[in-house]
Computed example of a mutant assay.
Amino acid sequence: MSEKDHWEHEFDHKWANDAEHKEPSARARMLAARWKHNPPEPVPFRGDPDPVRPRRSGWISTAVVLGCVVAVIVLLGYINFRAPY
């Protein structure tokens, strides 16, 4: 018997997948036993844990970004104006 035949004989996945009864995992058995006596309460889908504060206006952040860009342009222009060629 070659090594490949031995491997296929030892781990026959098709036979294992076609089994009539599949045992649940240990975690699934543990949760089933726990929930049998104490079922979990319903939880909303992606429920927020705490309320969200209203966001500030988008104009403030836009003005800050544009102000920084203008400041960098002015600073670079001033440096190039003073630099001798």
Score class of each variant (00 low, 15 high):
Met1Gln: 03
Met1Phe: 00
Met1Asn: 05
Ser2Lys: 04
Lys4Val: 12
Lys4Met: 12
Asp5Val: 10
His6Pro: 00
Glu8Asp: 09
His9Gly: 08
Glu10Pro: 00
Glu10Cys: 06
Phe11Asn: 10
Phe11Arg: 11
Asp12Gly: 01
Lys14Val: 06
Lys14Tyr: 00
Trp15Leu: 10
Ala16Val: 07
Ala16Ser: 05
Ala16Leu: 12
Asn17Met: 02
Asn17Arg: 10
Asn17Cys: 03
Asp18Pro: 01
Ala19Glu: 02
Lys22Tyr: 14
Pro24Ala: 13
Pro24Met: 08
Ala26Thr: 04
Arg27Tyr: 03
Arg27Ser: 08
Arg27Thr: 09
Arg27Cys: 06
Ala28Glu: 02
Ala28Arg: 06
Ala28Trp: 01
Arg29Phe: 06
Met30Leu: 08
Met30Asp: 05
Met30Ser: 01
Ala32Glu: 11
Ala32Val: 03
Ala32Thr: 02
Ala32Gln: 11
Ala33Glu: 00
Ala33Gly: 01
Arg34Phe: 10
Lys36Thr: 14
Lys36Arg: 12
Asn38Met: 09
Asn38Gly: 11
Pro39Lys: 09
Pro40Ile: 14
Pro42Met: 02
Val43Ala: 10
Pro44Phe: 01
Phe45Glu: 05
Phe45His: 09
Arg46Trp: 13
Arg46Leu: 14
Arg46Phe: 15
Gly47Ala: 02
Gly47His: 02
Asp48Lys: 08
Pro49Tyr: 09
Pro49Lys: 05
Pro49Met: 02
Pro51Thr: 14
Val52His: 14
Arg53Phe: 15
Pro54Trp: 04
Pro54Thr: 02
Pro54Arg: 01
Arg55Cys: 07
Arg55Trp: 09
Arg56Pro: 06
Ser57Asp: 05
Trp59Asn: 12
Trp59Arg: 07
Trp59Phe: 13
Ile60Met: 15
Ile60Phe: 14
Ser61Asn: 15
Thr62Asp: 15
Thr62Ala: 15
Thr62Asn: 15
Thr62Met: 13
Ala63Glu: 10
Ala63Tyr: 11
Ala63Val: 11
Val64Arg: 14
Val64Gly: 13
Val64Thr: 12
Val65Thr: 11
Val65Trp: 10
Val65Arg: 14
Val65Ser: 12
Val65Tyr: 11
Leu66Ala: 10
Gly67Ile: 15
Cys68His: 05
Cys68Trp: 13
Val69Arg: 13
Val70Thr: 04
Ala71Gln: 07
Val72Arg: 09
Val72His: 11
Ile73Lys: 00
Ile73Val: 14
Leu75Ile: 07
Leu76Arg: 12
Tyr78Phe: 11
Tyr78Gln: 04
Tyr78Trp: 12
Ile79Asn: 05
Phe81Trp: 08
Ala83Gln: 09
Ala83Phe: 06
Ala83Asp: 07
Pro84His: 05
Pro84Gln: 10
Tyr85Met: 13
Tyr85Phe: 14
Tyr85Thr: 15
